[in-house]
Design a protein around this nucleic acid. Structure first.
Length: 421
DNA sequence: TCTGGGGTCCTAGGACCC
DNA sequence: TCTGGGGTCCTAGGACCC
């Protein structure tokens, strides 16, 4: 069997780094970026981490620290971050031949075909080029499996100056793993961490040396694979990007809503977005799931959560049709007297648009429908999103999310380009 | 006042068939 | 008293990721 070598390239504090590219005054300052509705802290500069702001902390609990230390705060700006992500990934694509974009800020690569002695040099070069071309600093982990490359990356980020760490050497792996809590391994989170500790396994090294079949009995095949990966046996290869199987669009309203009209309006907007994504990947949906919920954190108010699915006779990507069906589901789910916090839609069982089987009795989307959707998508792509929208999306936007500190969309909106004076 | 959004994979159990 | 056994498919829910 040929020995594999993986690299993991991971952007450092990605959202914060994006903000810093176009606003260098933020360098050296503590900076945080918030989730939608300014809810939680989702990205922190190293200075902010040192001040003890935890990942995922509710923002309102951190306001004291923010004021005290003059921390720069940004609302999420996903258009901007998404565009910066593409720049990073495109840069990487120019430098390596075999890669898998794993998330908005990381990519796995295969390094086997390169001479084994050159890998450190290659990694340093890749990092330099990415920061030069995009302004985004990255960390680089090298290892014989994906799981170990995650560990290597973590060391690169925390303990090295060059931002590269090579963990191919077995005794080095042991040195790192003996001190690595089992819950910090990629794929082991709260529940399984607790379970494994109850079985007497609290470090990565103990998990590596555990009996894989025994562990599988108490957890699942996923953890069994992790054990092999820790041993250096690669079970997870690069995955080639395939179209999404589900597309979700949901958001909390930014305030509590009781009337169904406002919820319908919000849902219509989420549907419009989801369907755009659907057509963009050339798929059609075979069903939808609509859900609605109150705010689970407000324990004193009555709680209600519900969702419902409907399958279509024939797959569709027509926003109007999906809105129509979703509205029926929403009316079914809605109960008067609750204060709602969030709703959403998931487009289910997506298939390529040209793989559709005919139906004896039901007509598929007509080419007129498809063309209309294409025209709408193009107008919104070229002139700006929501240039054309559905009346059911509303004009008042009284459910729009809070976003008080959003930076300009420097790279995706003509009116928000950075100025040089 | 105030706690994100968008995904994937795996498993257990029920329905159904012969 | 006493009512099969084995296979597949589907779905809901649970686990994880960033």
């Amino acid at each position: 069997m040929q020995k594999k070598t993986f690299g993991l390239v991971d952007c450092n504090n990605f959202y914060v780094s994006c903000e810093r590219v176009f606003n260098p005054s933020l360098l050296g300052r503590p900076v945080i970026v918030l989730s939608n509705n300014d809810g939680c802290v989702v990205s922190r500069s190293s200075e902010a981490k040192e001040l003890g702001i935890p990942m995922g902390a509710p923002y309102y609990q951190q306001i004291g620290t923010v004021k005290e230390h003059n921390i720069a705060v940004f609302s999420s700006n996903y258009q901007f971050y998404g565009d910066m992500s593409q720049r990073v990934m495109n840069s990487l694509r120019m430098l390596v031949s075999n890669m898998e974009v794993y998330s908005i800020d990381e990519a796995f690569i295969r390094l086997d075909e390169l001479p084994s002695n050159d890998l450190l040099e290659v990694a340093v070069h890749v990092r330099e080029k990415i920061v030069q071309w995009t302004g985004i600093p990255t960390s680089f982990g090298i290892a014989p499996t994906k799981t170990l490359s995650k560990i290597a990356n973590r060391v690169a980020k925390k303990k090295t100056k060059v931002g590269v760490f090579d963990i191919r050497d077995c005794s080095l792996q042991e040195q790192i793993m003996v001190n690595l809590p089992v819950g910090d391994i990629w794929g082991i989170s709260h529940r399984w961490g607790t379970k494994l500790r109850s079985l007497g396994i609290s470090t990565a090294l103990q998990l590596r040396d555990a009996n894989a079949k025994f562990i599988r009995k108490h957890t699942s095949v996923v953890v069994e694979r992790i054990i092999y990966e820790l041993q250096g046996l690669s079970c997870l290869d690069l995955e080639n990007s395939s179209p999404r199987k589900n597309i979700m669009s949901s958001k909390s309203f930014g305030r509590l809503i009781s009337d169904i009209e406002s919820i319908e309006e919000a849902l219509a907007n989420y549907i419009a977005r989801a369907c755009e994504k659907l057509r963009n990947q050339n798929s059609k949906a075979q069903g939808i799931y609509v859900f609605l919920r109150t705010n689970p954190f407000q324990k004193t108010r009555p709680q209600y959560t519900n969702g419902a699915t409907i399958s279509f006779e024939l797959p569709t990507s027509d926003t109007r049709r999906i809105m129509h069906e979703a509205k029926k589901l929403l009316r079914m789910l809605y109960r008067r007297g609750y204060h709602y916090h969030k709703c959403g839609i998931i487009l289910l069982d997506l298939i390529p648009k040209n793989h559709i089987q005919n139906h004896l009795l039901v007509k598929p989307d007509s080419s007129d429908q498809d063309n209309l959707m294409k025209v709408l998508d193009n107008v919104n792509k070229v002139i700006g999103s929501e240039t054309v929208f559905y009346l059911s999306q509303g004009t008042k936007n009284n459910w729009k999310m809070r976003s008080e500190n959003r930076s300009p969309r420097y790279t995706t909106q003509w009116t928000e380009l950075p100025h040089i004076s």
